[in-house]
Design a protein around this nucleic acid. Structure first.
Lengths: 236, 236
DNA sequence: CAGGTGCGAGAATATCATTCTCATTGATCG
DNA sequence: CGATCAATGAGAATGATATTCTCGCACCTG
């Protein structure tokens, strides 16, 4: 599993400081730091792996720092030396999951030449990945963590959403260029709206024991969005 | 403030038990119980009032059971005798807030004769009430509690949403009858989608320090939804 | 009055996250 | 090699909260 090593990057920032530090000194410092950094990354990865394993097993993000520590065969001490807290751990996993999601969607839609077709694929995949019923088992980060994170740390969520948003914006832009969208639509804004609409609608239609109500389907969502941004003039 | 006394109703259920209990006995029991019940409702209301006051003051749902108890001049003992837990207290307030919201919207849209016009008013109001920026101060239940509740207790949320959903469904139905909507649209489903779309889009565009990004406006949301359910053929 | 019930006061318990202490290890440098 | 210092492990301590429990009083009600 490839993590983005969010924190490790942070500590690397000073290296590219724009001040007058002689290069040799930087190199020396870097050399002497590299080992430590590698070890640190190692630890961080272990924590992340452990957490992910636990989440996968329990199908829930209700994990204890203690559990993560035990599982990763390290110590609380170490945990708090590498993460500012439990929140940062979850955030790292969340970003990672979203990156993975964006990757999957990009891959799945690569074969489709038509921008609207790509958007359809995207909406379907995104819906499925965010849909509580299935996703709660495999992606509790999406269904459980994302909503509360959105409230407590909107900025971080925005960052985490960025890759996916970029992907969808790209599709929108090409659709617009092909004249498939309402001319008054700003691609980026439309992308943001569609992305969030799909994610939330999928999410809120999770557990419904009642058969005779809501269960809004992917089809309906896609239809709604499609009409929403093509203005009813569907070329596909 | 009129509460729905969710729990009090629960305790009343046994009275209408379908067994062979002689009516006189029921009446006797009821008479001897009435006083106690009234007292209980009194207490419940005091707890709810206290909680609401605290939430209003702090502009956040981060309250402590202890705070509520102190404020209401009662005791922990009493609190747990009337509520199964903190969660039930918040849920009661949440339902109440949504009922109030539905009432406001109904009132505001009463004057508008055109169904689409009513929907426009509804979307605007709902957006404003759910919008994090302003709402977090006055309606933290919407912005903070709703998302986490949606994950943990979807059934309760559905119940709480019911009045609002009914209202919007009604508007949709009339709009459909007037031929203002896409003919293939099921009013109830459209209503559900619009309601959730608006609430979530409003919510997720709360705190954004960045000026150059997302801030999706009510206008855009309304426009998106309108096109989504009229199919671009806007009569208004 | 006697007995029961509701309830105030607040101690006790349980769960976590987070911090702190102390001793060990492991690498680095003189 | 031996000193030193940073990183760690083990796990106790702390702090915040929710929830439960114990005691005793006050108020009905027959």
């Amino acid at each position: 599993m490839q993590y983005f090593l969010y924190m490790a990057q942070k500590t690397e920032l000073p290296v590219i400081t724009p001040t007058e530090e002689p290069a040799w000194k930087q190199r020396a410092v870097e050399r002497s730091t590299r080992a430590a950094k590698l070890r640190a990354e190692q630890r961080v990865v272990q924590f992340l792996d452990a957490a992910q394993a636990i989440i996968a097993e329990k199908g829930s993000i209700d994990l204890t720092v203690q559990e993560v520590v035990d599982r990763s065969r390290q110590s609380l001490r170490s945990f708090y030396q590498h993460f500012s807290g439990k929140h940062e751990l979850l955030l790292a996993l969340f970003e990672d999951a979203l990156n993975e999601s964006a990757r999957q969607i990009r891959e799945a839609s690569a074969a489709e030449p038509d921008p609207l077709g790509q958007l359809r694929i995207t909406v379907r995949l995104l819906y499925e990945q965010s849909h509580s019923d299935r996703a709660r088992q495999q992606r509790p980060l999406f269904t459980d963590f994302a909503p509360q994170l959105l409230v407590s740390h909107p900025a971080e969520v925005k960052v985490a959403h960025a890759p996916l948003l970029a992907l969808i914006t790209d599709m929108m832009t090409r659709a617009a260029a092909a004249g498939q969208l309402r001319p008054d639509l700003k691609p980026r804004r439309a992308a943001a709206m569609v992305m969030q609409t799909v994610m939330f609608l999928a999410q809120s239609n999770g557990v419904s024991e009642d058969e005779n109500v809501h269960p809004i389907t992917v089809e309906e969502v896609w239809d709604f969005c499609l009409t929403g941004f093509t203005g009813g003039v569907q070329t596909t």
